[in-house]
Amino acid sequence: MLSLDMFWNRVIPALNEGLFFSLSLIIPSAVIGFLGGVCIGALRVYAPPAVRRIADFHVGVIRGVPLLLQLYFLYYALPKWGVRFSPYQAALLGFILCSSAYHSEYIRGALLSIRQGQVKAAYALGFSTLQMALCIVIPQAVRRALPGCGNEIIYLIKYSSLAYVLTFIELTGHAKELTARSFHYIEIYFTAGMYYLAMTSLAAWLLGLLEKKTRIPGFGAQK
């Protein structure tokens, strides 16, 4: 058995440090990934056909290739072409690319679901295309996409553990190192699991709150 003393003085501080590194990946990936997803999603609906096809292709590749392979590619393959990233940069970039591709799917669907009549009404009032998009379509689409995008963020929290394979030692990495020294697999992995569960639960709670705050009568996910 793992002694309580060791648990509090060795395991928890190490996992807390890992948590800090995990968050340093998750938070920027979530924010930039979401904003990137909004941009890509908008391009996939509104851009001229050529741009649209490029964006579709980009998303197709990101969604169609295992994330692990993408991370390996960014970190181990790109240096052969002279592009060098630190483990942190490679993981962050990989997560942003992946996350934004998935967000763009939800945003695209939501944009397409906005009734065309509202677009016509906006134009009929003299809106420019940009004003129409910013004031009418995007505020509605973001609300519609919120549940899907929320899910993506929960996934991101979990797949952030893949950064470990690029030698970026985050929460999972710290847990692994602890077990390599002490062999208390059950206790340490269980505790690390609780850390992830806490993060995902907190995220789910915050997202639920956000959905409630932005809810508009007769709009979005009706139950």
Binding site: R115, G117, Q118, K120, A121, A122, Y123, A124, L125, G126, F127, S128, C135, I136, P139, Q140, R143, I216, G218, F219
Partner: peptide
Amino acid sequence: RSLRERVGMIFQDFNLFDHLTAQENVSIA
């Protein structure tokens, strides 16, 4: 745009902006 600003339009199916209140629907433009 200035043509559309000066020519109002009422649609068969209203086409109000779903995420705005009645007052905001009127004031946004």
